[in-house]
Amino acid sequence: MLTGKQKRFLRAEAHHLTPIFQVGKGGVNENMTTQISEALEVRELIKVSILQNNEDDKHEVAEALARGSKAELVQLIGHTVVLYKESKENKKIVLPK
C-alpha cells in the first residue's frame, strides 16, 4: 500500500509519460492485464488511457486494471489511469519513506 507522500511522488514522475495502453470498447480482458503486468515489470510506472467508446465506469476499469496486473492504482485523472508496480529485476524508482 502506498502512502500519500509516495503517491504524490509517483504522480510527479508520471506527469511526463504518455499512455502506452488503451482500454476501448472491449473493456479489460486477461490478455491486456498480462501485457500491462509485463510492461510494469520493465517500466514500473505506466499510464493507461480509457477511450471514449468504453461503456464501463472509469473507476471500475481502473480497479480492474490494478487488480488484474497486481499493481497499485496511483491516480485516475480524467480518462487516464496511472499504475505502479515495483519491478523485481529492473528496479529504477526509489520511493520516499
Score class of each variant (00 low, 15 high):
residue 8 R to P: 02
residue 30 E to H: 03
residue 66 A to Y: 03
residue 22 Q to W: 11
residue 85 K to I: 03
residue 6 Q to E: 14
residue 50 I to N: 04
residue 9 F to D: 04
residue 42 V to M: 07
residue 81 V to C: 05
residue 14 A to Q: 09
residue 74 V to G: 05
residue 36 I to G: 01
residue 70 K to M: 14
residue 78 G to C: 10
residue 78 G to R: 11
residue 10 L to M: 08
residue 47 K to L: 02
residue 66 A to T: 03
residue 42 V to Y: 06
residue 65 L to A: 13
residue 70 K to I: 07
residue 71 A to Y: 04
residue 29 N to R: 01
residue 28 V to G: 00
residue 84 Y to I: 07
residue 13 E to I: 07
residue 46 I to D: 12
residue 30 E to F: 02
residue 36 I to L: 06
residue 34 T to H: 11
residue 27 G to T: 01
residue 34 T to W: 06
residue 94 V to F: 09
residue 44 E to K: 04
residue 88 K to P: 01
residue 76 L to Q: 05
residue 57 D to S: 15
residue 59 H to N: 12
residue 82 V to M: 08
residue 95 L to N: 01
residue 94 V to S: 09
residue 51 L to M: 13
residue 22 Q to V: 13
residue 44 E to N: 03
residue 27 G to C: 00
residue 33 T to A: 00
residue 36 I to R: 01
residue 94 V to H: 05
residue 77 I to M: 05
residue 7 K to V: 08
residue 46 I to Q: 11
residue 22 Q to L: 11
residue 35 Q to M: 12
residue 33 T to W: 02
residue 81 V to F: 05
residue 81 V to S: 03
residue 75 Q to G: 11
residue 43 R to I: 03
residue 56 D to W: 07
residue 11 R to K: 15
residue 14 A to G: 12
residue 43 R to P: 01
residue 23 V to M: 03
residue 47 K to F: 06
residue 19 P to E: 08
residue 78 G to T: 09
residue 97 K to I: 02
residue 10 L to C: 09
residue 66 A to S: 10
residue 89 E to P: 01
residue 32 M to N: 01
residue 18 T to E: 15
residue 42 V to H: 04
residue 5 K to A: 14
residue 59 H to Y: 12
residue 32 M to T: 02
residue 74 V to A: 10
residue 57 D to R: 15
residue 41 E to D: 08
residue 49 S to T: 07
residue 33 T to L: 02
residue 42 V to I: 09
residue 91 K to F: 06
residue 36 I to V: 15
residue 72 E to R: 08
residue 39 A to D: 06
residue 69 S to R: 00
residue 5 K to F: 09
residue 57 D to L: 15
residue 62 A to P: 03
residue 42 V to Q: 09
residue 79 H to G: 14
residue 81 V to A: 02
residue 95 L to D: 07
residue 26 G to R: 11
residue 73 L to E: 10
residue 79 H to K: 13
residue 35 Q to N: 14
residue 77 I to N: 07
residue 42 V to P: 00
residue 79 H to F: 08
residue 23 V to C: 00
residue 75 Q to H: 11
residue 60 E to C: 08
residue 70 K to N: 09
residue 20 I to G: 03
residue 52 Q to M: 08
residue 81 V to N: 00
residue 23 V to R: 00
residue 76 L to Y: 10
residue 68 G to V: 13
residue 40 L to H: 06
residue 42 V to N: 09
residue 22 Q to F: 13
residue 49 S to R: 14
residue 50 I to W: 05
residue 82 V to F: 10
residue 28 V to A: 04
residue 13 E to V: 10
residue 23 V to P: 01
residue 54 N to R: 14
residue 83 L to I: 12
residue 82 V to Q: 11
residue 87 S to K: 02
residue 8 R to W: 12
residue 71 A to K: 00
residue 9 F to W: 10
residue 27 G to A: 01
residue 40 L to R: 03
residue 96 P to N: 03
residue 68 G to C: 14
residue 81 V to E: 00
residue 42 V to A: 09
residue 9 F to L: 06
residue 60 E to P: 00
residue 5 K to D: 13
residue 35 Q to R: 13
residue 48 V to T: 12
residue 45 L to P: 06
residue 61 V to Y: 02
residue 78 G to S: 08
residue 96 P to M: 06
residue 47 K to G: 05
residue 61 V to W: 00
residue 16 H to Q: 12
residue 7 K to L: 07
residue 84 Y to V: 08
residue 11 R to A: 13
residue 1 M to W: 09
residue 31 N to C: 00
residue 14 A to V: 11
residue 47 K to W: 07
residue 52 Q to Y: 11
residue 28 V to I: 10
residue 46 I to Y: 12
residue 55 E to F: 13
residue 31 N to R: 02
residue 56 D to P: 00
residue 92 K to V: 02
